[in-house]
Design a protein around this nucleic acid. Structure first.
Lengths: 223, 223
DNA sequence: AATGTAGTTATGTAGTACATAATAAAATTG
DNA sequence: CAATTTTATTATGTACTACATAACTACATT
């Protein structure tokens, strides 16, 4: 089969060149970029194209722009791109399954950080949420309290990047939580999880978490 | 302090509306979008703006465009945005630290998947890489073989999403591997790791991995 | 029927014009 | 002269037009 030699659109090339340029070492956070017009002239493309490329970088948070000031390099927000496409309906079952696995891996690696930042754990809130989960009557409530419980665990990591990632990811994966057999009892309750986290060892907690998630991971096979 | 009420640029609004529109349920993968001109007229903005917004979505892989065909909705590539900004020099020490932690969590959660897909593990290659690592003389070689060793582990998960994420992430984190004291012996060698993976339990492997990564995690405190 | 040709269409690129807001410079005022 | 207001300047933001390009359609030719 012959290669399709559809040449890239100019935007892609310009975007690439800009990224290269910005990461080359000449620029530091806060530095201001050349004017759009200058970039356009230098690359011999229309200002239009340059603006499209810059618009992409702006979306990622790599640059910010002010009316007269120009554009300045800034620290990019980490999962801006991911955030925008984080709708379950965009993804195939295969990708959803992989994302479920991704979260499972995260969840099971979490104890490493939790046992390093144990003083950050909000036990009171965890216990409260565990109780509310038990008292919940509707599936919607259970999903809500379950989400908050796990979110509270993540929060204790004190790692904004991980927290943001999971925060974006969770709603994508919950679309199918409704279809899951949410009536089947959780093999190990939230309350028990907290208890072990409070006084057990890291290995004990990991094993407890594994049990807690058993149902969720079992259904991965159905995909 | 008063809110800065700098109204969003139109591109941001249009992009948002397009995302909303595309995720609303009317469109399925493969469907073709309205023409740029129509979108522009409907939203009462210039075609220019619409193109900028579409260009962003194209970058994320949410849409593809053909010359006469128009633009069609497609399954987005997952970490396209992240990939572009994945240069260490864009990130603050804090973010780098968080990303190191992120990978650590992943690495420690990995056994869950490995022990589900044990038949996928390429033990031969792992052993080979473990050996090459030992024989390596330069720091550069060691980094290379270490990277490949862990990549081979990830590969066994058979989870393209996780693999891609780590593949993007790794070079970002390696910039500082050069500054790390790479001469200090690893507490538990690659070879030992493979041996345990081959015949040990999941818990044993997890503990081994923890030991293996001990040095890397220790230096997180320096950040 | 297979090939070739011309026309149509939606994206891709270029260019111009002007609005807007932030800054700097100049002018005004107390 | 200091403080404030006004005016000019500048780079981004938005709009519009024009044409190039490639892919598709339909018709024409052999």
């Amino acid at each position: 089969m012959l290669k399709s030699l559809d040449q890239k659109p100019l935007v892609d090339i310009v975007e690439e060149k800009l990224c290269e340029y910005l990461s080359s070492g000449k620029y530091y956070t806060g530095d201001q970029l050349p004017k759009e017009q200058e970039i356009a002239e230098q690359l011999k493309v229309s200002r239009n194209i340059v603006r499209e490329a810059l618009s992409r970088l702006r979306m990622l948070g790599l640059i910010e722009s002010r009316k007269k000031k120009g554009m300045v390099l800034s620290e990019p927000q980490l999962f801006n791109g991911f955030e925008r496409i984080a709708h379950a309906r965009f993804f195939s079952d295969k990708k959803i399954k992989e994302l479920l696995e991704f979260r499972y891996v995260l969840e099971m690696g979490l104890p490493e950080l939790l046992y390093r930042n144990q003083e950050n754990i909000d036990f009171e809130r965890l216990e409260d949420l565990a109780g509310q989960y038990e008292k919940a009557t509707t599936s919607k409530e259970r999903i809500q309290f379950d989400r908050e419980f796990h979110a509270t665990l993540y929060k204790a990591t004190n790692n904004e990047t991980i927290i943001r990632f999971v925060t974006i990811l969770t709603p994508v994966l919950e679309f199918q939580a409704k279809t899951e057999n949410s009536e089947s009892a959780i093999p190990l309750s939230h309350a028990e999880l907290v208890k072990i986290l409070k006084s057990g060892t890291k290995n004990q907690f990991r094993n407890a978490m594994e049990k807690h998630l058993k149902n969720k991971i079992e259904q991965l096979k159905d995909f």
